[in-house]
Nucleic acid binder design. Structure first.
Lengths: 188, 188
DNA sequence: CAGTGATGTCTCTGGTAGATATATCTCTCA
DNA sequence: TGAGAGATATATCTACCAGAGACATCACTG
């Protein structure tokens, strides 16, 4: 197993919090882990089936509609700990914004400023979301609380950095735009 | 074409700097765009073949060894500008470190500290690399210079944020570890 | 001149994203 | 009552993508 499926960790981890359907699992991952993780149905359902086959999760209460809840089993919990202990798998970076800025000369300063402005807005939105998540976690008394706050803190640091960078970048691009304007004969 | 291939942008962008072989292209992307982009051979060669078929790149000088250089054509340059102008495609996040920290209770404070310590070291290494890249770009007189520095600046902000977060996180985890030790009867 | 490492092309496997097809359930409002 | 909207739920298909490795040549070096 050269490339372990990262999905397995997220699925077992999610079910370690509470039993859920595949649908609810996807919702939970999107809403709770959303700022650092994502899963699609195309991954979740096959993974659940495989984990069931291996005895790491148990399918419970298949209703008439076909909906069934999955729960983690004791071997599944051990499997989760085993997977968590494995070295972190780094996802290769693919930042579309940076790619566009790197070739920004083909795009022009104005279009680049729009892109950076969007990034700035996104960073600010992210900070607001983090504030809400932080308040919610701090309000509850879970054994996981400090760990969860660690990930929120990482998001906050990252978003503030994005914000600061965007400000710098907007200044730089404004200067570039002015220079281009001056060269083209415009005054100020 | 619902999902445009991101690889196409990187390949055309790379060839817009200078003509290269597929091998050199991959080297260039890894070394120059490496901190925000990555491509694999499995993407590059089929993409080059497809771009050649569409007339966006031209294959030049196939030597006896089979090595051939690719150059971007005028339609290719227009295609690049068209692709760059399309909305940024956000890659869904997949941060293995955060996933482990979120389920950190299953891992324990000590193991988490090791992970964060690794992240701290990586951030510091990244800062050193950025300093080198910055020096190199500032030394040359290219029309692209300001755009390239924009991406370096983003890396620097991000790495400093990671550094600051790691320091915070190490304190938090140390406190958790102490608390666990105290509960277990250890004296400091 | 054998060995090593860099250059170079290409393929195969399997992880992954995103859209979509299908169906049921629940609530609301006419 | 019943039509419709929207949430819940399962599952699949296509295309994108990473990583490893097979295979070959070339340049340098001991």
């Amino acid at each position: 197993m050269a490339r372990a499926s990262q999905t397995e960790v997220a699925v077992l981890g999610g079910l370690s919090v509470q039993p859920m359907t595949g649908y609810a699992l996807r919702e939970a991952i999107r809403d709770v882990l959303g700022h650092f993780w994502s899963e699609s149905y195309g991954q979740i359902y096959p993974t659940l089936a495989e984990l069931e086959r291996q005895g790491f999760v148990r399918r419970e209460g298949a209703t008439r509609t076909g909906a069934s809840t999955f729960a983690i089993t004791p071997p599944g919990t051990r499997r989760l700990q085993e997977l968590l202990a494995q070295p972190v798998q780094v996802t290769p970076p693919r930042n579309g914004l940076m790619l566009r800025l790197y070739f920004g000369r083909h795009l022009g300063p104005a279009a680049c400023r729009t892109l950076v402005q969007q990034a700035l807005t996104e960073a600010q939105d992210a900070l607001e979301r983090y504030a809400e998540i932080r308040a919610e976690i701090e309000g509850q008394d879970s054994a996981d609380r400090e760990y969860w706050l660690l990930t929120v803190s990482a998001g906050e640091h990252s978003a503030r950095a994005a914000q600061a960078w965007a400000h710098d970048a907007l200044s730089t691009l404004a200067a570039l735009d002015d220079a281009a304007g001056t060269r083209a004969g415009r005054t100020s």
